[in-house]
Simulated assay, not measured.
Amino acid sequence: MGTALFLVLFTTATAHAAGPPERSRPVKELIREAEAAVARLDIARARELWAEVYEIERSNVAMCTMGQLDARMGRWAEAMVELSQCVDQMPAPRTKQERSLYERRHADLARARTRVGEMVLVPAPGVVGMLVNGRGVKHGSSRVFVPPGQHEVTAVGEDGQVARTSVKVEAGESKPVPLTLDKPAPVDRAQGPERASGSPAPGPAAPKGPPQGAARPGPDLRVVVTGTMASVGLLVTGAVCLQSAQGFKQEATAAWKSADSGRAAGTALRPDYNEIIDTAATGKLMSVLGTGALVTGAAAGVATLVYVWLPNDTQIRVATHGAEIRFRW
């Protein structure tokens, strides 16, 4: 309630000092709503309403009030900007009440200054834009208030150069920040703007693709024949191994059945179980070898087809455990 009363007294004192024109009805409504927001301690809402007032009448009263409300919310960088403008535009006090208000605004500004750091941007010739922490700096401004800590300052040159620097500012500190740009290399008009980067002038561009009238080289016939033969050989080997595996499996199964039936009748000789086990193991090994041969043969066939159909400048890279194998044709 005391803050609301203070705002009213502040507005009245400024009105007597500068003699502003009568406020419009929308402005009066906004101020009344802002005072109600302060009374219920909704400082953020009051700040929004005073910003609307400032957009309408651009008064120093609104600017000072926004600075005070931002300070109450701990937004010291914003408060510093607003209170600086507030104090700069306050007229010299003529009454005791104006003197008290004048001194309080200076005290608010001094308190805000101890909570923020100040960067004084010193742009070099050719700088057309500046940003602090990604936010543009108003053209012509050189003093930027920021919270204490590390900040990124960016300068943009008229030729598109970009320079970045990191600046650490402490609370209450004012630090100059020179912004320089790398000078662009002079343009050789005889050679064109391509020489501006300082790189040597490129020679005539090489024609893309094979020369006109020259046939594009085809795949190496030796590679195709070797790949085809390897694929067919592996496929045949795999089929033979699988057929043999089936025979060993059938032989072992028959031996087991014969041994079981003879043992049940009590007339058969004691079977050689080691031989049966070896036969079954041989069948399993042949099955594994046959399957591997079929897979490898199929892969060789696919690789041969890929070699024949893909363009000659294609690269296939296979990286395994940090090693890289390149196949190029």
Rank of each mutant, 00 (worst) to 15 (best):
325 I>R: 14
189 R>Y: 14
226 T>Q: 12
59 S>K: 00
58 R>Y: 05
238 G>V: 02
324 E>S: 14
217 P>V: 07
299 A>D: 07
39 A>R: 09
291 T>H: 13
137 V>T: 07
237 T>I: 01
207 P>A: 14
143 R>Y: 05
168 K>M: 07
198 G>Q: 07
290 G>I: 00
62 A>Y: 00
28 K>D: 08
180 T>E: 15
120 V>K: 06
143 R>S: 11
60 N>S: 06
270 R>K: 12
199 S>H: 13
225 V>S: 04
215 A>N: 06
292 G>S: 15
85 Q>S: 09
133 N>C: 07
167 V>G: 04
265 A>D: 13
69 L>R: 07
201 A>H: 14
181 L>K: 03
26 P>K: 03
205 A>T: 15
155 A>Y: 00
129 G>Q: 11
234 L>N: 02
60 N>P: 04
171 A>D: 08
48 E>M: 08
277 I>M: 10
215 A>S: 11
147 P>S: 12
117 G>W: 00
210 P>D: 01
310 L>A: 13
79 A>S: 14
45 R>Y: 05
315 Q>F: 10
197 S>K: 11
206 A>F: 11
122 V>I: 11
316 I>C: 09
160 G>I: 10
297 G>A: 10
225 V>R: 08
2 G>M: 15
160 G>N: 06
239 A>C: 09
181 L>F: 02
186 P>T: 10
222 R>C: 02
52 E>G: 04
262 G>N: 09
103 E>A: 15
37 A>P: 03
326 R>M: 13
60 N>V: 09
73 M>A: 07
74 G>R: 01
203 G>D: 13
113 R>P: 04
157 G>D: 08
242 L>C: 11
303 A>H: 02
272 D>K: 03
167 V>Y: 02
163 A>L: 02
190 A>P: 02
262 G>W: 00
175 K>N: 04
130 M>A: 02
63 M>K: 04
54 Y>A: 09
1 M>E: 15
41 L>T: 12
126 G>W: 02
13 A>M: 15
205 A>H: 13
133 N>G: 09
161 Q>T: 04
272 D>T: 07
18 A>M: 15
286 M>G: 13
294 L>P: 00
82 E>P: 00
182 D>N: 12
92 A>V: 08
116 V>T: 07
139 H>L: 12
234 L>K: 01
92 A>M: 06
209 G>Q: 08
254 A>C: 04
227 G>F: 00
257 K>C: 05
219 P>R: 01
11 T>A: 15
294 L>K: 06
308 V>T: 08
246 Q>E: 12
260 D>T: 10
270 R>Q: 12
